[in-house]
């Protein structure tokens, strides 16, 4: 039973880390944002796992039930989801502008172009 108790959390950590890895290791700006989404969504899964009470039900008051899962993390994550999509939208807008300005959305090419520009400014 002990394994199953922490199983949720361990998988969630695996999920978070794969998102985190995509953010750091991938060079495509849009892909990085996808990684960020996965990373954040996985943190949401962690929060929601905390709220679960075994044998409980959704926190909508009803005379039939007495045990409810914890509503507070739900509220926090509702807020966090919105924050997440706001960040994604802004990040994508930046990616579009970067594509227009640099002609690419690959990190290494952008950095190369910046170095060239700095070199020519010397």
């Amino acid at each position: 039973m002990n394994f199953l108790e922490q199983y949720n959390y361990w998988i969630v950590i695996l999920l978070m880390m794969s998102g985190f890895y995509i953010v750091i290791a991938h060079g495509n700006l849009v892909k990085k944002l996808m990684g960020l989404t996965i990373f954040q969504t996985s943190v949401f899964i962690l929060y929601i796992s905390v709220s679960k009470v075994i044998g409980g039900t959704a926190p909508i008051l009803n005379d039939q039930y007495t045990v409810y899962s914890n509503p507070l993390p739900h509220v926090l994550i509702l807020t966090a989801i919105v924050v997440g999509v706001a960040t994604t939208a802004l990040g994508l807008a930046l990616a579009v502008r970067i594509k227009e300005a640099y002609g690419t959305v690959e990190e290494d090419v952008i950095q190369e172009k910046d170095l060239q520009q700095e070199g020519s400014a010397e």
């Binding site: 949401f44 899964i45 929601i48 959704a58 509702l78 919105v82």
Partner: peptide, 21 residues
């Protein structure tokens, strides 16, 4: 993950995640 949230009794969150994510 929205399906998982339903399983965890977080119906509002599931709704939002499905609509947004």
């Amino acid at each position: 993950s929205a399906a998982f949230f339903v399983l965890m009794d977080a119906v509002d969150v599931a709704f939002t995640e499905a609509a947004v994510g």
